[in-house]
Simulated scan of single mutants.
Amino acid sequence: MNEQADGGYRDFQRWRPSVEVAFWVALYTLNAVFNGLVARIDNARTAAWEPWVWESSSALLILLLIPFVKAVERRWPFRFDTWRRSLPWHLLASVAFSLVHVAGMVGLRKLAYGMVDQHYRFGAWWPNFGYEYLKDIRSYFVIVAMICLSRLWLLRQRGEAKLLAAPDDGPPVEPVERPERFLVRKLGKEFLVAAREIEWLQAAGNYVNLRVRGRDYPLRSTMAAIETRLDPARFLRVHRGYFVNLDYLAEIEPLDTGDARLHLRDGAKIPCSRRYRAALRERYGQPAAVE
């Protein structure tokens, strides 16, 4: 493992929110400048300041709407295996995006024009909104595409795991149905992680995060699919979204709700729902409590 590169990635994670804001601001500032120059050329008879008001008001509203697009994409991830289910929701969200964008930029333009004792005319709402929506749906999906690309890049930097496939010729070196190792790719390098070193697993959409020595490695799988691959003598499901390696379990903290909180050796705390708590007690030779 390249520790210098890994350290650089950790540093980037600390600065990630600021970097993301700076990226979007720079992108739409440049877009507003270029569009403003084109609009100034196309509308030479207008006052010199008007094209800049048009473009800056549009860019500002889009910047304010980016958190909304990110929230929609988190709720309905736009990926190769989910885009068909997610597309209708994103199309609906693009209409809301456009309505807020158009209403907001028209309001800002009216305000700017009013400051110089002029009146801004948007024209008839319906045909003009249709024209604006054609532009806004493109902007909406450009933002979604940028979000997806950044996620793929971060997954590559953070590291991705996959199951070892059976070789083309000869018997597999280990049971493929219940692998003893996972192949991890990180920062352009590949290495093996022993299954026994996985401290816990967490569901994350279409991925399952493998927690290994303080790092998360997303495995493209579902919890139901990975459950059949785990050694039941070592791993136990403790929550709808969590498996824990019992070798790393340090403490079970009962909660008043009937659930529990699991403390692991690395200091992590994992929820244990009432549904799975009985199996955990029985694993350690304690009879399940009578409700």
Rank of each mutant, 00 (worst) to 15 (best):
M1R: 09
Q4W: 14
D6Q: 14
D6S: 14
G7H: 09
Q13T: 11
S18W: 13
V19S: 12
E20V: 15
W24V: 04
N31F: 15
A39T: 05
R40Y: 07
I41K: 13
A48T: 13
W52C: 02
W54G: 01
E55W: 04
E55N: 03
S56F: 10
S58P: 10
L65N: 02
R74Y: 02
S86P: 11
L87H: 00
L87N: 00
W89S: 10
L91I: 11
H101D: 03
Q118M: 13
R121V: 12
A124L: 11
P127E: 12
M146W: 00
M146L: 15
C148W: 12
S150W: 02
R151E: 11
L154V: 08
G159F: 12
A161R: 03
K162C: 12
P167I: 05
V176S: 14
E180G: 15
R181D: 04
L187N: 05
V193L: 01
A194H: 12
A195F: 07
R196D: 12
R196H: 13
E197V: 00
E197S: 15
G205T: 09
V208C: 01
R211H: 09
R211G: 04
R211S: 06
G214S: 08
D216K: 15
L219T: 03
R220I: 08
A224P: 13
A225P: 12
P232E: 06
R234N: 01
R237A: 03
Y242Q: 04
F243D: 02
E251P: 05
D256G: 15
G258Y: 10
A260L: 05
R274Q: 10
Y276Q: 03
A278K: 09
A278P: 03
R281S: 10
A289S: 08
E291F: 09
